[in-house]
Amino acid sequence: METLERYVAEHPFFAGMSEKHIQLIVGCASNVKYDAGQQIDRAGMEANTFFLVRQGRVAVEIVNPTSGPITIQTVGDGDVLGWSWLFPPYIHHFDSKALDLTRAIALDGKCLRQKCDADHELGYELFKRFAQIMEQRIASTRLQLMDLYK
């Protein structure tokens, strides 16, 4: 538990958070491991987890019935993954799959939501960080849509 706490505290995503809030977050955290090729989440399923990838690589995919899965994005060491748990109806929009052996810290979405509802300051700090991730993802997506190298 102590290494888990230290990892959360030192993760750049949580940089600048108070000790108190770190404790609250750690209370929702657990270690998880996925083998290479293992499915992590599927579109349409309930979204309840937010991952801090410690090591490995995860592909976010969307499946086209005629051409199979298309990889939209990959995330790796130190990246964060998943925000469908933030908003109702808490359903995954995309598939995710471990490409390599992946170790991550899983944060329980329901647990985090309850704590954010109880402590709006924690909620604000978390949403501030998620907003930044979303901004980066949307900028990346726009660039991908540009098909720059055509």
Binding site: S67, G68, P69, I72, D147
Partner: peptide, 8 residues
Amino acid sequence: DRAMGTWR
């Protein structure tokens, strides 16, 4: 920028 599922 884009890849099929076979790209690792």
